[in-house]
Amino acid sequence: MKCVISVLGKDRSGIVAAVATTLAQCNANIDDISQTILGDDEIFSMTMLVTLDPETAGFNEVQQQLEQCGQALGVQVIIQREDVFQFMYKI
């Protein structure tokens, strides 16, 4: 199952590592990743395209793990199924 993950918050060390570790623990594969630091306020923004392995960890479990990771980091982490994401942003 393909999913889009968005991470947004104040930049700090370890965000990419923590999110990637959480995904690895769920046996998810990172297919693509893009990150940037926005403006002088150092707002961290990252978008990932990942493939989940539902036999290891389903969408809801991965979502819960990412929410806990985001809370620990003080950032917002949102995961959406790719088909839902594509539908939401289709013109």
Rank of each mutant, 00 (worst) to 15 (best):
D41C: 12
I78W: 00
A57D: 07
L52A: 07
E61S: 07
D40G: 13
T47W: 06
T21E: 15
Q68W: 01
D41A: 13
V4N: 03
Q68T: 03
C69T: 11
S34W: 12
G9C: 04
E67M: 07
Q71G: 05
T22Y: 02
Q63A: 10
L66K: 03
D40V: 14
K90F: 10
R81V: 05
D31F: 05
C26R: 01
K2Q: 15
I43T: 13
S34R: 15
T22D: 07
N60R: 07
I78T: 14
D31G: 11
Q76V: 14
S45K: 02
T56E: 15
T51M: 08
Y89M: 12
M48T: 12
A57I: 02
D11A: 08
K10D: 09
I15V: 05
G70K: 01
F85N: 07
T36H: 11
I78L: 14
Q63P: 00
F59Q: 01
I43D: 03
G74P: 04
Q71D: 09
A17K: 15
F85M: 06
S34F: 12
F59E: 00
I5H: 08
R81A: 09
F87C: 12
Q76R: 12
I33F: 06
L49F: 08
R12W: 04
V19A: 04
M88F: 09
R81E: 11
V50C: 08
A57W: 00
F44V: 08
Q76M: 12
Q25H: 14
L23K: 01
I79Y: 00
A24S: 15
Y89K: 10
Q35V: 05
Q65C: 04
S34D: 10
S6D: 03
T47N: 09
V75H: 06
D53Y: 01
I15Y: 02
Q71P: 02
L23P: 04
C69Y: 02
Q71Y: 06
Q65I: 00
M48S: 11
I91E: 15
Q25M: 09
D31A: 11
K90L: 07
I5F: 08
A28P: 04
K2E: 15
G74K: 08
I30R: 10
F87M: 14
K2S: 06
E42L: 14
G58W: 01
K2W: 07
D32T: 11
L8E: 09
I78G: 00
A20F: 04
V7G: 04
I33H: 03
C3N: 05
I5S: 06
E67N: 10
Y89P: 00
Q63R: 12
P54H: 09
V75L: 13
D83C: 08
G74F: 12
A24F: 06
A28M: 09
A20M: 04
V75G: 01
A72N: 08
E67W: 00
V77M: 02
A17R: 13
A28I: 10
V84Q: 07
G74N: 10
A28D: 04
